[in-house]
Nucleic acid binder design. Structure first.
Length: 464
RNA sequence: GACCCCAUCGUCUAGCCCGGUCAGGACGUCACCCUUUCAAGGUGAAAACACGGGUUCGAAUCCCGUUGGGGUCGCCA
């Protein structure tokens, strides 16, 4: 049997990080089994669904590299089919008409709550046939005794007494299908074999299972994966990382880092931490998915991101960081900058955790420092400036203008002055970058070139 | 409240199913090494089986309970 999984977000907001992980697990599982990964947009809530949200979800998936098979299915377009199934169940006596008004239902729930009972529909129309004129909802005639059992690939066997479940509405009085019905019909029609989704749907699975049974359809294998929590253990909210994946992209995370991080959140393969996509596809399976909720940890994401930045090619990083630099500058960079970035990338990329940091670290290559950081300014004291002046004199006509020779000159100068190399290098760094932290300073000098280096030294390095 | 799920270092986790390990790894933290800064890299350290009962020669592993956390209880999805 071919494995068919799906990701079914509702376009009422961005693709949040939990959804991204659900999509990743579905994608991985289908790729592992050489099956299919389908995408269905659950846009039946017309009031809350937006085009912007839909676009954000599609963009997010593309950015993460989670490609889906076939066309996107839009749930709303299948409403007629959903209604048809509800009618079928009604005709077969497995569902019934309910003429309750919303007010009546609210009263019922209120009464139950007051009596300390769970707020459930009492089935008052279940066996009636004295149907009045007017609209009615169609409810499933669910079993009232016995139990409903879910064989969950992650949670194991989960069972609940049928008396806990009430007769859910499948078709509203206005003729539109409810989520519970739509999901089942679509999953069946799309031939989904494995429903991998968030833990929050576990209790829905019981009710959905009853619809499958009612229609005599095979029940797909469920796999309810634990939710992601914030650093404080509470449900992920906007405060701590329930951001859209676009926010992670904007913060400067690489898609492969996000993928790797999300994969290890709730899933493991022995002691492996950095896992390539190829390995992930080869190794991913449901039994290794953990049963408990995981907390989102930016520190670990940062670490993974730094790892993948170091692995990324210099060309790719230049391409990624250039738009950030230009956005900050509000103007295109000068002609020689991309080449400087490319040459300096090896030294730059091992010092940053995100592309945002990379853009900042690259500043000395982009433009002459307009301001000197406080700590750097302290290095440019009279002693430091004197050293800079001597250094400038010795390397002024150095040939070739290369890292090794520039460093030798500094070492000789330090020796003659009876100071450590750092006492020459740090003022140089301050003068050339305006900072106390940078890639190796002689590498910076080589990349900047003789003219620019001497100009910066002249501007900051010598006493007036 | 009812129902369902979960519980190993601060965090992500291995180990649990098939009881016997100094309870392993990674991130983070700290120290040292390397070193022109910062990183990277290397070495090392501190750091956990929620609690209480069983079962057993022996329990992180099996059973029960407690506590704690989470999820679900709509003619929302």
């Amino acid at each position: 049997m071919t494995v068919v999984t799906r990701f079914a977000p509702s376009p009422t907001g961005f693709l949040h990080i939990g959804g991204a992980r659900t999509a990743l697990f579905n994608w991985l599982y289908s790729r592992h089994h050489k099956g299919q990964f389908l995408l269905r947009i659950e846009d039946t809530d017309r009031a809350r669904s937006t085009e912007a949200a839909k676009a954000a979800i599609l963009d997010g998936l593309k950015w993460l590299g989670l490609d889906w098979d076939g066309d996107v299915v839009y749930q709303f377009s299948r409403a007629a089919r959903h209604a048809e199934v509800a009618r079928e169940l009604l005709d077969a006596g497995k569902a019934y008409r309910c003429y309750c008004t919303p007010e009546e239902l609210e009263t019922m729930r209120e009464a139950a709550r007051k009596a300390g009972r769970p707020p459930r529909y009492d089935g008052r129309w279940r066996d009636r046939t004295d149907w009045p004129q007017g609209p009615y909802a169609i409810r499933l005639k669910a079993p009232q005794t016995g139990e409903t059992v879910i064989e969950d690939a992650v949670q194991g066997t989960v069972r609940v007494g049928n008396e806990q479940l009430d007769d859910m509405v499948m078709l509203r009085a206005d003729g539109t299908p409810t989520y519970m019905l739509s999901v089942v019909v679509d999953d069946h029609d799309m031939a989904i074999t494995h429903v991998i989704r968030g833990d929050d749907h576990l209790t829905n699975a019981f009710r959905q299972s009853q619809i499958y049974l009612g229609m005599g359809w095979p029940v797909p294998l469920f796999a309810h994966i634990p939710l992601i929590h914030g650093a404080d253990g509470a449900k992920l909210s906007k405060r701590h990382g329930a951001l859209g994946v676009d926010a992670y992209r904007d913060m400067g995370y690489l898609p492969e880092a996000v993928r790797n991080y999300l994969l290890r959140l709730g899933w493991s393969h022995g002691d492996d931490e950095t896992i390539s996509t190829e390995q992930a596809i080869a190794w991913f399976d449901l039994p290794q998915v953990g049963r408990s909720a995981a907390r989102f940890d930016f520190a670990k994401l940062d670490n993974l991101n730094a790892h993948y930045i170091r692995l990324a090619s210099d060309e790719r990083l230049v391409e990624l960081v250039l738009p950030r630099i230009e956005a900050a500058l509000r103007t295109p960079v000068e002609a020689g900058v991309p080449e400087r970035l490319r040459r300096g990338m090896t030294g730059l990329k091992q010092r940053v955790k995100t592309l945002a940091e990379l853009a900042d670290m690259a500043r000395p290559y982009v433009a002459r420092p307009t301001e000197i950081e406080e700590k750097a300014a302290k290095l440019l004291d009279p002693a430091g400036r004197a050293l800079l002046a001597s250094y400038r004199d010795t390397v002024g006509s150095l040939e070739p203008w290369a890292q090794a020779g520039l460093e030798d000159a500094a070492r000789h100068l330090a020796e003659r002055a009876g100071v450590k190399l750092g006492q020459v290098a740090q003022p140089l760094r301050a003068a050339l970058t305006g900072r106390t932290i940078s890639p190796p300073i002689f590498e910076v000098m080589e990349i900047l070139g003789r003219t620019e280096t001497l100009a910066r030294l002249a501007a900051q390095g010598t006493p007036a």
